[in-house]
Design a protein around this nucleic acid. Structure first.
Lengths: 361, 361
DNA sequence: TTTTAGCACTCAATTTAGTTGAGTGCTAAT
DNA sequence: ATTAGCACTCAACTAAATTGAGTGCTAAAA
């Protein structure tokens, strides 16, 4: 009673292998049916090469390892988050898209379009449709984008209201309205525009401030000093202040189509959370830092009670080697991870490509 | 058995009045509790001035009129869509916002901001929070907006790619990328810009095409002819092609908090529909045509199976007397219509105001 | 040592039957 | 025109019984 007997001494390779096989079987069945899996079912699936009793023993082992668990004494087994993690890390095999899926994706990308936002919205819709889960796309391009061109447009002649139009290398266009402390002459404005475009072209946004400050120092005392000062002020008030992060979330209603939806409270909590967006953003921002392959967050790993029953598969997408955002699929922990990974990979690749092309134009 | 006896001959004013009173009572009770209302409950609410039996008779009348119905033989009564309609048209009294609500709304509008989209997003969130229902805001400003200013920015020097920046009177800024059939010189472009700004300032977008064509005719043979031709081409490729309708939808998860949510299929169907957006848009577009006070669509009136159990309260908002969009609340048919109307009215007024101010700046 | 058959046991889920109570419609008395 | 009274209906709840998929353990077989 007091000593927990750990009897997984049968550690030869064959046993190890068989355990994995049975675990995968449980996992797959559970993914398909959403119902706890029992020993007899597994036995049948293995064409009775092992008896239910044996499988029960192995299941006991798996439970001790923390990969599966009992909802109650006499129910079948259900994978734990730890189990999914093990599967994802060690057992999962690469999966490929079906021809249908390829076709759908290709068809959707046939119509070209020039609006970045439209491209992203479509991509998120597409991903949601093909995966039949909720899909998300984060665009956080601006902050890691590159300066291409700026234009200053007076909003009222003679006034001090200014429209600043900014075009980034990735083709994104942004507008900012600014109010200057005092009216600015047309000639001065033209100079300013020319200066900014000459100085900043090709510069990553992160370096702009530093660069302008340095140049300002250099020009100290010269005619240009004031110009640089003004330029810096404008840039600071516009491009640098805006944290242009935007999240698209599509197909949340598909979450209601899963059987786990029956648990009303779970679903409600999740949808609430998704509407807030901030918690998700925090998670996604991590992906921006490193350029890795797919990231998978399983249930409790997301560190949020409301997301306990859901998993997230994400991958960053990029222009060249600059990460500019993240795409992802959100579904119940009981999801087909390999398939989701394949989809997310494809979407991330495609989205990067399409946006790159757009920027080049 | 064969002849339906209609015994609503008691048509004197007192009876009429009493019927209304009881109907309102049923309606209010049902709105509060979401449970069918029985004759005894009503009798108690009327301090037993009438016996349950009498009330049953009246209820039978109301049922014959189509205002209430039985879910099953021995259940209480539930208002029908027709009943809600009657209430809304004839019985509903104007309601005012509570101080709390006023306070919340005012607080939210304290922080000024310059981005149109941000203002609208905030407004929809706010409306959803205060009403505790799903809220929506349609912005369809552009098509009925007024020209203010245009700017042309070459994207690559010497190339034929152009960024067109357009500012409308309501303060909205739009960008379009266009590809010209042949490169355009800087001087020519400046002329073009000046021409467009001079010709079109203050013109409703709907009249732009006609105006330019007419001017083109007038200048036939003159030096300006080609300029006008080019101008028209650009305008057509940008401002006039874009149908810049955008719908914000916030707080859909609040729908899950209503008791009618138990009917899983209903909710699922609704959320699905809301994600598509198009059906809602169609409905909302109608409001743009006339400037009326609040519009109320009740359940089946929306002509969509999935929305059968929900109602929509909308009102257009405007700049001056130009309608530029619609705000609305979406909730179960069993909603507090008068309160929703008050909220929607306030939001529509406020939103119009805020956007107007923004445009003036 | 591993596998399996057998058995007692558990427990959610389903079924069944019975009870309750809010509500109705009708009729006859007030 | 109103009400009291009565028979009837039916969802919702309760409690008990049944079912069956599943378990763990043990002892025998391989």
């Amino acid at each position: 009673m007091s000593v927990t007997r750990i009897h997984i001494k049968r550690n030869s390779d064959t046993f190890e292998l068989r355990r994995c096989q049975i675990f995968t079987e449980i996992l797959n069945l559970y993914i398909q049916t959403a119902a706890p899996v029992g020993s007899r079912t597994i036995a049948r699936r293995l064409r009775n090469s092992l008896s239910p009793a044996t499988i029960r023993n192995i299941m006991a082992d798996l439970e001790e390892l923390g990969y599966i668990e009992h909802p109650y004494t006499s129910a079948g087994r259900v994978p734990t988050d730890q189990g999914y993690r093990y599967y994802v890390n060690a057992l999962m095999q690469q999966s490929h898209l079906t021809e249908d899926e390829e076709e759908t994706i290709r068809a959707a990308h046939e119509r070209h379009c020039t609006e970045l936002e439209e491209i992203i919205e479509r991509a998120s819709r597409l991903l949601s449709e093909v995966s039949n889960q909720a899909a998300l796309v984060l665009f956080s391009g601006v902050s890691r984008d590159i300066f291409k061109r700026i234009a200053l447009i007076p909003l009222d002649s003679g006034s001090n209201r200014l429209l600043v139009v900014f075009v980034s290398a990735s083709g994104m266009v942004r507008n900012y309205k600014v109010e200057l402390p005092e009216p600015i002459e047309d000639i001065q404005m033209e100079r300013l525009t020319r200066l900014l475009n000459q100085e900043l072209e090709g510069l990553p946004l992160a370096q702009i401030e530093y660069h302008l400050k340095r140049r300002m120092m250099m020009e100290q005392g010269s005619l240009y000093y004031n110009l640089f000062k003004q330029a810096l002020a404008i840039i600071k008030a516009t491009i640098l202040t805006s944290k242009e992060e935007r999240l698209w979330l599509e197909g949340t209603s598909r979450i209601l189509e899963q059987p786990e939806f029956k648990e009303v409270t779970r679903t409600r909590a999740l949808l609430r959370l998704l509407e807030e967006k901030e918690p998700l953003l925090e998670l996604l921002r991590q992906d921006l830092e490193q350029d890795q392959r797919c990231r998978i967050y399983i249930g409790s790993e997301m560190g949020n009670e409301a997301m306990k029953w859901y998993s997230l598969v994400t991958r960053s997408y990029k222009i060249g080697d600059r990460v500019i955002g993240t795409v992802g699929i959100l579904g119940p922990t009981r999801m087909e991870y390999s398939h989701s990974v394949a989809l997310v990979d494809r979407m991330a690749g495609l989205l990067g490509e399409v946006i790159s092309q757009m920027g080049e134009l």
